[in-house]
Design a protein around this nucleic acid. Sequence first.
DNA 1: TTCTAATCGATTGACATCTAACGATTCGAA
DNA 2: TTCGAATCGTTAGATGTCAATCGATTAGAA
Lengths: 153, 153
Amino acid sequence: MKPTQETLGITLAAAARDASRAFDAALQSAGGSRPVWLVLMALKQHATANQREIAQKVGIQGATLTHHLNAMESSGLLSRRRDPHNRRVHIVELTEAGHAMFLQLLGTVTAFDKRLRDGLDEGDIATLRRLLAVLQHNVGSSAEGTKVPARND
Amino acid sequence: MKPTQETLGITLAAAARDASRAFDAALQSAGGSRPVWLVLMALKQHATANQREIAQKVGIQGATLTHHLNAMESSGLLSRRRDPHNRRVHIVELTEAGHAMFLQLLGTVTAFDKRLRDGLDEGDIATLRRLLAVLQHNVGSSAEGTKVPARND
DNA sequence: TTCTAATCGATTGACATCTAACGATTCGAA
DNA sequence: TTCGAATCGTTAGATGTCAATCGATTAGAA
């Protein structure tokens, strides 16, 4: 490892941090937030889902999702009801307002993505996805259906 | 944008999240943490620095750094003294324990980086760095001397 | 010399995230 | 049928981050 060069993890974290901050700022200007967007997106892909599935899809812990869902339910973006077949389970669904919020944020997300891609061709994008997937594989996760690794004490 | 494909920002954030979690776990097992590592690294590169410089180097706000420095000073890893030429400024320096902690964590960091790079050749690494730098440029930041973008209300 | 603006680091409060633990519910082996 | 283990979502507390604000200090124009 060259002494003047950052480790790959630090480089990746810094790039992601900068991109995420800009993305967060864009979403906030559009009246949303990143967690809101991620939950909306998960529920757009699967119209009804339980919380465990959403948390897994989004890549966060159930406890974290509870907080986001509480806020989003209060805001009228989604509803939760007990599954009659298994009363431990919440079925989560978007409301009309939730669907509207998704559309509201979609423009922002698309514009941001376009901005992020500026100067990169499809080959670059594919390469980046491939390399990022390798990194994820190397730390023990796959890009889809990510399982949250336990943090050791 | 293809409907079945994640936006680039989400892909990047997910990869970075997974890598960061693994990195955090590795550092924790070695008795440190990511903020500790980043501060140690910044102070290894510039033996004496003021807080603003460290915060900028690490890529976090001054308020955040204060908390980390408080903890690290309590742990004996570093010391702070007022600059006699400008009493607003703190000069931050590593202690012997701080230098020892750096070495302690260095092995972990190196091993983690090696793990991250598994299956990637030098060309891949260079490509990844280049592409990440493009992304950072596109969101308004450069990879070195990162300025933290303001979050709009 | 005076005074305004800028700088520095700290404090406060809010947001997002995690772990550990919990109560309620369900599953499945005995 | 019983009961221990597993699942589900929630709560509480801790960590890391940010913005806004503050008191102390300095710089520089008038």
